[in-house]
């Protein structure tokens, strides 16, 4: 076999070392840095995109949180406004009711005053009428003409104290 013929060993060894060293230099200085650079660039790009996506996601979550907060705020302020309006209306109604009550009480007492006056007047007239009736009745029944003062006294006695 030619593999075991030592005469070709030196040239094969020489060219192997030359070629291998040349290839090593070409690989380590030119080819490998280029491939490494491209792979690194790609990895960087992927990492970058992932970071960007992560950032956008965080931003979106923030916006969502803000939106939810705004809605909650609006809801609570609406509730507060509603409560306030209800309280205001209740206060107004109470005030009006009170005023009406006062007015009503005034009218009632005025009316009561008028009624009392009218009653007094009526009682007064009743005394006069009763006196006249009594004078006329005594005149007709027993024919005695009594003077007004006597009749009056008798009527007053019979009716009790009018006032």
């Amino acid at each position: 076999m030619p593999q075991f013929d030592p005469s070709s060993f030196s040239s094969q060894a020489f060219w192997l070392i030359v070629m291998f060293v040349v290839l090593y230099l070409l690989m380590s200085k030119i080819a490998l840095p280029r491939i490494a650079e491209v792979l690194e660039e790609r990895q960087d790009k992927i990492d970058d995109d992932l970071a960007k996506a992560e950032k956008l996601k965080t931003e979106a979550e923030q916006v969502l949180a803000e939106y939810e907060k705004a809605i909650a705020d609006a809801r609570s302020s609406a509730t507060a406004a509603l409560k306030e309006a209800a309280a205001e209306m209740a206060a107004e109604a109470a005030k009006r009711e009170e005023a009406f009550g006062v007015e009503l009480a005034g009218k009632i007492s005025e009316a009561e005053g008028r009624i009392a006056t009218a009653r007094n007047e009526a009682l007064q007239n009743l005394t006069v009428v009763a006196t006249e009736v009594t004078a006329a009745a005594t005149d007709r029944l027993i024919g005695a003409k009594l003077d007004d003062a006597t009749v009056r006294k008798a009527v007053d006695d019979a009716m009790g104290d009018p006032s």
């Binding site: 070709s8 040239s11 020489f14 070629m19 290839l23």
Partner: peptide, 16 residues
């Protein structure tokens, strides 16, 4: 030392 450029060397060169 024999350093002839042989068919083996040529194959190595083509490989490189």
């Amino acid at each position: 030392i024999d350093v002839s450029f042989t068919n083996s060397s040529a194959a190595m060169l083509v490989t490189v």
